[in-house]
Design a protein around this nucleic acid. Structure first.
Length: 483
RNA sequence: GGCGCAUUAGUCUAGUUGGCCUAGGACGCCGCCCUCUCAAGGCGGAGAUCGCGGGUUCGAAUCCCGCAUGCGCUACCA
């Protein structure tokens, strides 16, 4: 099997595109075939180099590697349509010669006007094929005169059947299909011509794409036939929509793959989640690693109804992958986030060492990597007690607990979590204070918050000196607040 | 308007050839347990007249027809 993902570089890679790319990739990997990345940049005015770079970067981040395409090469270089115009032109000439295409001298403005009028009068806005009746001689003469023209496909009579691997057979009556444009009046190819020529040239065997392309498919099939070729197999994936049932867009929040990376989603979690948008392995499996995905994926199990993007579930899934990371991995993954928050330098080995110890404490407390920042900040800089936590630093009982804690920490032999816990539990009991009442003031003094990673383990990492200093400082400030 | 696609709980879905579905799993939600906070984890629970209406059949979420709703396409965008 040879499959491809052919994004148009008019913006960042969004999750819908990523899902399409993933399904193609999965099929290629599963079949031992090839996965090709091709840039569909026929629309010069909207395509940008930055978008191409972003798409490549995001694809790599997701771990969707391609066998042919930008950066890796291949015999169909450059894998972007702007570099392959001769191919399209040659195909167009062939179609013109064979009578499958004709020159259309209608001006775009005229066309727009006629279309508008047709809609207003309740007629079909389809092109009326008026230039189709211009004789070849006259057509050629007009072209020689320098009259601008577009090349249109002459849709034959009959019916075109799309055999879709997801939806089965779909029939289209050809009279419903417009004589679509193949070459614009500037000679550039349109999408329909370019995809067909590229897919043919690259020997694509399966075209897997979003179902917004379904109505285009009969046009393309007609083109394949006119070129004397067999069409590849088609599979149209359901759209991804938001909770309101509308196609996923920026209105629904972040849809760019890059923004998920920034929030600290893991590539494996994204891939797992994306795979489940319109596909399922069986009736119960949710968490699947790449190998399982590759081994189990099939188009037969792709659903045909739109998939709703569920942020909550993505978050949960990501947390599952975070929990599965070991301390080493997590610590490394977290460093860029610490750096961005100004808590450490990106290459700070001391901070990395500390993060290795912190990682197990926060692993099941974060859903995305960015969640770690507020949770671990107190390990890296002096905390400022949160407004709603200050109450735990004032009052006689709280202050007594803090004073006594300081005393016990000073006397303690070692400074590991187990020793700390037994010492402070003993203290609470002797003071007649419930453990939770005794530990909360300490937590606030050390972390600045009522919510933190486990106290004793955190204390061990902070070290005796830091703990004592923070307790003393809290006592001071609490005293001032009281007075 | 025309053409096409879709329609199982708030959400992702299972349900491939009709009976094993008094509709299964997961997210979320609620409760209990665990507990130094928050999580995580364990246990339990609520939640779907399978869009609506007909039909075929001994029997339909599963097949057929109609309707409704949503979405896509209808560009010299992709």
């Amino acid at each position: 099997m040879r499959l491809r993902f052919a994004p148009s570089p008019t913006g960042y890679l969004h999750v819908g595109g990523a899902r399409t790319a993933l399904f193609n990739w999965l099929l290629a990997r599963r079949s031992g075939g090839s996965f090709i990345l091709r840039i569909e940049d026929t629309d010069l005015s909207r395509s940008t180099e930055e978008a191409i770079e972003a798409i490549i970067r995001d694809m790599r981040w997701l771990g969707l590697d391609w066998d042919e395409g930008p950066e890796v090469g291949g015999e169909h270089w450059p894998y972007r349509q702007t570099g392959r115009v001769n191919l399209y032109r040659r195909a167009a000439e062939e179609l013109l010669r064979e009578g499958s295409a004709y020159r259309c001298f209608c001006l775009p403005e005229e066309l727009a006007e006629r279309r508008e009028r047709a809609v207003k009068e309740g007629r079909s806005p389809m092109y009326d094929r008026r230039c189709r009746s211009i004789s070849p001689e006259e057509s050629l003469a007009m072209a020689r005169e320098g009259k601008p023209f577009a090349l249109r496909f002459a849709v034959p009579e009959g019916e075109t059947v799309v055999r879709d691997l997801v939806r089965g057979e779909i029939r289209f009556r050809n009279e419903e299909i417009e004589d679509f444009v193949l070459l614009r009046n500037d000679g550039s190819p349109t999408y329909n011509l370019a995809v067909v020529v590229d897919d043919l040239d690259m020997r694509i065997t399966h075209v897997v794409r979003g179902d917004d392309h379904l109505p285009n498919t009969p046009k393309q099939i007609l083109l394949y036939r006119a070129l004397g070729e067999e069409e590849p197999a088609f599979a149209h994936l359901p759209m991804i929509v938001g909770r309101d049932g509308k196609p996923l867009s920026k209105r629904h929040g972040d849809v760019a793959v890059g923004s998920f990376q920034e929030r600290g989603f893991l590539p494996d979690a994204m891939v797992n989640f994306l795979a489940l948008l319109g596909w399922s392995l069986d009736d119960s499996t949710t968490i699947m690693d790449r190998d399982t995905l590759v081994a189990g994926f099939s188009l037969e199990r792709v659903s045909s109804k739109p998939a709703v993007w569920d942020d909550e579930k993505l978050l949960w899934m990501n947390s599952q992958y975070v929990m599965a990371m070991d301390a080493e991995e997590l610590a490394h993954a977290l460093m860029p986030f610490l750096a961005r928050a100004g808590l450490a330098e990106g290459d700070d080995t001391e901070a990395l060492e500390k993060m290795r110890r912190i990682a197990p404490l926060i692993r099941e407390r974060i859903k995305v990597l960015a969640d770690a920042v507020p949770l671990v900040a107190f390990f890296f800089r002096e905390p400022e007690a949160e407004e709603e936590a200050r109450e735990l630093l004032v009052g006689e009982e709280n202050r007594a607990v803090l004073r006594e804690t300081g005393k016990r920490l000073l006397e303690l032999e070692g400074f590991d979590a187990a020793a700390l816990e037994s010492a402070l539990r003993a203290m609470a009991e002797e003071m007649g204070v419930k453990p939770r009442k005794a530990f909360q003031p300490v937590r606030v003094a050390l972390t600045g918050s009522k919510v933190s990673p486990p106290l004793f383990e955190s204390m061990e990492i902070l070290g005796r000196e830091t703990c004592l200093r923070r307790i003393a400082r809290s006592l001071e400030e609490g005293g001032m607040e009281k007075g």
